[in-house]
Each structure stands twice: as C-alpha cells, then as structure tokens.
Design a protein around this nucleic acid. Structure first.
Lengths: 162, 162
DNA sequence: GGAAATTAGCTCCATATGGAACGATATTGT
DNA sequence: ACAATATCGTTCCATATGGAGCTAATTTCC
C-alpha cells in the first residue's frame, strides 16, 4: 500500500489512526453483516445493547451509543418485526417500552459477533499480550472520560451560564 | 452515563472501544462538518488525501481509505463543482484523471481540520504525553499491518490457490 | 393545581451511501 | 497480433441515515 504513510502526515494522529482502522476494520464487517444477515447498523446496535442488558428502553440505547433516536426507533421496529426482540410497556413511563431480546435475537447476535471476534483476534495478532492490555487500557481511559469531552467544544458550545 | 460499563462486557474489547469512540468522537464531527461546511464524507476523504499528496487519482484514494469507488467518484465530482479541486488527464492512463487541490480547497480543509484538531486535543487531555505516545504507537502498529489482516478471513476468504 | 417546558419515540422526507452495471482503456495469455 | 480478462471511474438505483416535526406523556415552574 503505497500511500500508507498518510497516517504519519496528519494533525490528528490518534483520531486519524482510529478513523483509518475504522474504515478497514469495522466498516467492511458491518457491510458484510448487512449482506449476509440482513442486519443494518441500528439493528446491530440494539442487539448489542440488549445482550449486555435486557429490558432497556430506546433512550438508554441512544445515550450509550450516541445514535439518533429515529435510527434506533427504526432498528427496534425492524428487530421486533423479525422476531429478534419484543417490547413491553414500561410501567413507570407510558411513553416508553422496555425492549427484550428473544432467543433468536441472541442467536443472531452471536453469529454476527463471531465475525467481529475473529477479526479482532486476527488484527491484534501483531501485538503481544502486554501491548493489547495497554492499548485496551488507554482506549478505555478515553472512553470513560466521554461525558466530560462530549460536553465541551467542539461537541457542545461552552455553557457560560453554569 | 449509567450504561458506560457496556464497554467492559464485550467479546471484542479493542474493537468495541474503538467503535464507541468513533460514535462519540468522529461521527458528530462529520455531521457538524456536513451541516456547517456542506461537505460530506467522500468529499472530506478526497480533500484529506490531496492535502497529504496532490495529484493522486481516484483509485489511490479508494485504496488508502477503503472507500467504494462510486463514493469517491461522487466526491471528486462535487469538489470540482465547488472549485475545491480540479482534474487533469493522466498522461499515463487515459482512464484516469489526476486530482489537484485548489487554494480554496486547502483553505476549506484547514477550516474543517481545525474542528478535528480541537476535538483531539480535548479528548487526549486525560492522557499524559507518554500515554499519548504509546497509544499512537500501538494504533500505528495495527494500521501498518493492515495489508496482512485485510486479506485474511473474515475480510477475505482464504486463497487456497496461492 | 395548572400552565409551560421538556422528553420519548415515532413518522416523514431529503440526502448520503454502497452494490451493480457499464463503456473505455489497459493488461495478460496464447 | 489478437482475444480474453481485468481495471478505472462513472452512472443508476435501492436502501440506509439523520434532521425536522409531531403527539402524547412527564416534569418543572409558579
């Protein structure tokens, strides 16, 4: 790949490497998922969240994934139509449903997740165990700080009326 | 964020953290770019590549960014229409144009890139200089190995006729 | 308590995105 | 030299995506 040195020539060294990896790592898998399993992103997002914790509502999912509510709403509707999740009214708030994954939903999740697991194993082969541990830790540190930075410019204007 | 622990409950610890960060870090900036500058992803992709190296062709850009050729083709056409790049025939291959960024294109790139630079600075604040260096190095290691892993399953079937 | 403001999630609509197909050109194989 | 195959980038078309708007429910404010 003759232009790979582009990753050295960027004013955003971490962001650009993450974007580069996303283009080659995640996006092709999402496209394959769509082709082979007929699942689009919002549906996958909902499945992942419900495997982590059953009985969430749409708002929860939007919040932890930063996806627009209309996308998640469509994902939820499609998954219910496919029998991969079902909805129950939320007794605490009549505007909300609680979302539950079905056995078929869990099976679908596991099939697709297998793709991602195999990819990650292959990609991380170039790192030793310590490097993988460090990398995970540093990404973790950024992710756990998301509430702070996602409320600052350039994500949100400075709120001068705190 | 009450569901942040989802990042601990994944069979793909690195991939999931990168995806999580992408959702909160990059995607909102791309959406803001589209809103404020009227640039969509393929256009931004082309601008970045031409700032790195002027005179590339579409194929080069598709290769180093793993974007589909039709997306890049549309991006090129739009940028030319906007006066941000111009095309010249490639004397070595009549199927190709060489793409050159204009001064306005470079100015646009710099304006948008400022958004990404500011975000990166803010997000990386939680790391010290050594951590940032290590993180960049590890991501770099994965990115530089892209030719290997992108030709393996699950990206490509094993080629048994090597 | 009631009005005003906010929230939840849905639907609509415009636009972004990616696969397929294609014509022109280049490369490979005989 | 020529036919077969592959490549390049464009165009078409179907579908994915996100902003706006909306109704119903909830929360906040007076």
């Amino acid at each position: 790949m003759k232009l790979l040195d582009i990753i050295d020539n960027t004013p955003i060294p971490v962001g650009y490497r993450i974007a580069f990896l996303t283009n080659f790592w995640r996006e092709p898998l999402l496209r394959r998922m769509e082709r082979e399993f007929g699942l689009i992103r919002p549906e996958w997002t909902v499945l992942i969240c419900l495997v982590y914790r059953d009985g969430l509502n749409s708002r929860d999912i939007c919040e932890v994934t930063e996806q627009p509510s209309n996308s998640i709403s469509r994902g939820v509707a499609a998954l219910e139509e496919k029998g991969l999740i079902h909805r129950r009214p939320d007794p605490q708030d009549a505007r909300r449903s609680l979302l539950f994954i079905t056995d078929e939903g869990r099976a679908m999740h596991d099939q697709v997740m297998d793709l991602f697991v195999r990819a990650e194993r292959s990609i991380l082969e170039v790192l030793d165990a310590e490097e993988t541990r460090v990398l995970t830790g540093l990404l973790d540190k950024l992710a756990r700080d998301v509430v702070r930075w996602s409320h600052l410019p350039p994500y949100k204007p400075i709120d001068t009326d705190v």
